[in-house]
Amino acid sequence: TLKVHYKYTVVMKTQPGLPYSQVRDMVSKKLELRLEHTKLSYRPRDSNELVPLSEDSMKDAWGQVKNYCLTLWCE
């Protein structure tokens, strides 16, 4: 499951381990945003700071799954 905080919160079913490009595509379609305006980030467990997502950091983000849910933020 993927939970995304935006102006409102959406929850989507997804497969764990998807690459950033696929996750961003899913989120942009769900929120009806243009792909270039979809910026995603996540919060590591040991931090209060949001970390921007990229293809490289997506593996780390999937490591933050809690209760089968990855929580992301969209700007």
Rank of each mutant, 00 (worst) to 15 (best):
L2W: 02
K3A: 03
K3W: 07
K3N: 04
V4L: 00
H5Y: 02
H5D: 07
Y6P: 08
Y6Q: 07
Y6T: 04
Y6C: 13
Y8C: 09
Y8Q: 12
Y8S: 13
T9Q: 04
V10P: 00
V11A: 07
V11I: 12
V11Q: 10
K13Y: 11
K13E: 14
K13I: 01
K13A: 11
K13D: 14
K13R: 10
T14N: 07
T14S: 02
Q15R: 11
Q15K: 14
P16K: 13
P16I: 14
P16N: 08
L18S: 09
P19C: 11
P19M: 04
P19K: 08
P19H: 09
P19R: 08
P19W: 10
Y20A: 00
Y20G: 04
Y20H: 04
S21G: 11
S21I: 06
S21M: 10
S21V: 12
Q22N: 06
Q22Y: 09
V23N: 01
V23M: 04
D25T: 07
D25V: 07
M26C: 00
M26D: 04
M26I: 09
M26A: 11
V27Y: 04
V27F: 01
S28N: 04
S28H: 11
S28V: 06
K29C: 03
K29D: 06
K30T: 05
K30D: 04
L31M: 06
L31V: 00
E32T: 03
L33T: 02
L33W: 04
R34K: 14
R34W: 00
L35W: 08
E36G: 03
E36W: 04
E36A: 06
E36R: 03
H37W: 02
T38K: 07
T38E: 01
K39Y: 14
K39W: 06
L40D: 06
S41T: 01
Y42P: 00
R43L: 14
R43D: 04
P44G: 05
P44V: 13
P44C: 14
R45G: 12
R45N: 10
R45V: 12
R45D: 11
D46S: 09
D46C: 10
D46W: 11
D46R: 05
D46Y: 08
S47M: 06
S47L: 02
N48E: 15
N48L: 12
E49K: 13
L50F: 10
V51L: 11
P52I: 05
P52A: 12
L53D: 02
S54Q: 08
S54N: 15
S54I: 00
E55G: 00
E55V: 02
E55K: 00
E55S: 04
D56N: 10
D56A: 13
S57R: 11
M58Q: 07
K59M: 12
D60M: 06
D60I: 04
A61R: 01
A61Q: 08
W62K: 03
G63I: 10
G63D: 14
Q64R: 01
Q64S: 15
Q64W: 05
Q64V: 04
Q64D: 11
V65G: 11
K66V: 12
N67W: 02
Y68V: 08
C69W: 01
C69H: 06
C69F: 01
L70E: 11
T71I: 01
T71W: 02
L72K: 04
L72R: 01
L72M: 06
L72V: 07
W73Y: 09
W73D: 02
W73C: 08
C74H: 06
